[in-house]
Simulated scan of single mutants.
Amino acid sequence: MDSKIKISITNFITVIYLFCFLIISNGTYISTAAKIFFSILVFFSMIINYKKVFNAFSLWLVIYTLFVLSSVSWALYGEFARQSASTVVYTTICSLAIPLLLINNKKDLEFFYKIIIVLPLIYYIYYLIFYDVPNIFDLRQDASNQIYNNIGLYAAYSFLFVMIYQAEREKRNIYYDVFFVIDLFLIIISQSRKSFIYIGIIVILSMILESKNVLKTLLRILLVFVLLFIAYQVVKNGLFGDSMKELLLSFEGDASDSSYVGRMNQFDISIGLFNQNRFLGLGIGAIEYVCRFVHGQSAPIVDNDYLDILSDLGIIGMVIYYGFHIYLLIQYIYNKKKWNKKNLLFFVLLIMLFIQGFLIRGYFNNYYIPILLYLIYYDTKTLKQDDSTILET
């Protein structure tokens, strides 16, 4: 890595932010103290330099939060909705620290990339130190929590950000290529299905989008299908663990995977709630309340942003939340001729977030999603500023 490491106050605050909100469990004294700390910092930053608040990212966060707060007034489960709304408010306020405090120049941005790259390894070490881990090479085995899923997810993002970081540099730093191996190792031992899917998306989309030659593109697509077939056979034979094998068999009609079956059951619950108030939803937190307290499901959420938002906030909430994603998508499509390799990779990240909506619950109190969305938004601004960095074929 770099021979000289200089940590500014901004970088130090960035480390605190990511550690407290992405590694420390939500609801602990440390995470609560961090919420208060960053809320105060954001408040004073807005007073000192309020102009930084006026951008598309911040405007979207505020509109979304106001709609969440207003949903309490028509919520079917009022008390639970109020608690859920306060969680969203804290998440939004702390997320405003990203444009106000953490990313003000290219050096801050580069440091952010580096932290995201090393984050899964730090999380893995933290997990081994502070939790009773029966098998350090199979985190899912006899696990008492699902932190292994986060480790795998962070590793998938780290994999992509290694590519982004290298794309920004004039000279490739081979030390960071080591993290490709580390990330793949962490994904394998976590047996996170989502992470395997994300790595596949990264590789496939990067291969296809980098080519403007029709013949090359067709050959790459053919290669992708060959690799997918090989991966299918490998997973089916259990070489990536029983969890991945069971999921594949579930899709083939063998309903033996409890996670898959649970998701299908909760799909029906979500659609039922959505049909009760299609435009406004039943108020923030409705799906969680029903699954946890009415049906007594062990998993209190459906792990699908699209279904969760439709249940809680209706069609209007869906338009508001994913409206910003679509805005970013339009920016990339409109400026496609200006893409360089970095822009292409951020476009891949945006597509991942659309797909991720089917696999996790990110809209509620997830601190990683606003970080990624702001980094994508920051990248779209470079498309308007620089016409010289055209993607080479």
Rank of each mutant, 00 (worst) to 15 (best):
I5N: 11
I7T: 12
T10Q: 15
T14K: 11
V15F: 14
Y17T: 02
F19K: 03
F19I: 13
C20M: 03
I23S: 02
G27A: 05
I30S: 07
S31V: 00
L41D: 07
L41Q: 04
V42R: 10
S45D: 09
S45G: 15
I48Y: 14
N55V: 08
F57R: 05
S58N: 11
W60T: 08
V62L: 15
Y64W: 15
A75M: 03
E79Q: 09
A81G: 04
R82C: 06
A85T: 06
T91Q: 12
L100S: 07
N105K: 09
K106V: 13
P120C: 07
Y124I: 03
I129P: 13
F130A: 07
F130N: 10
Y131N: 14
V133M: 08
V133P: 05
F137D: 03
A143R: 11
G152R: 05
L153E: 09
A155N: 06
Y157Q: 03
Y157G: 03
Y165P: 00
A167K: 11
N173K: 11
N173T: 01
I174N: 11
L184K: 04
L184R: 01
F196A: 01
I197R: 01
V203L: 15
V203I: 15
I204H: 02
M207T: 05
E210Q: 11
S211M: 04
K212G: 13
K212H: 11
V224F: 12
V226P: 00
A231N: 06
Q233T: 11
V235N: 05
K236G: 04
N237V: 00
G241W: 04
D254M: 09
A255N: 14
V261I: 14
M264R: 14
M264C: 03
I271Y: 12
G272L: 01
L273G: 00
F274C: 04
Q276V: 02
N277M: 05
R278I: 13
L280W: 08
L282P: 06
L282D: 01
G283Q: 02
G285P: 02
G285C: 09
E288M: 06
V290E: 12
R292Q: 14
H295F: 14
G296M: 03
N304H: 06
Y306M: 04
D308C: 04
I315H: 02
G317S: 04
V319P: 02
G323L: 05
F324C: 06
L329H: 03
Q331Y: 06
Q331E: 15
Y332D: 02
L344M: 15
F347W: 08
L349E: 01
M352H: 12
L353K: 11
F354P: 04
I355T: 08
Q356W: 03
L359P: 10
G362D: 07
F364P: 02
N365W: 13
L373Y: 14
L373E: 10
L375V: 14
Y378M: 00
K381A: 05
T382K: 14
L383Q: 06
L383T: 08
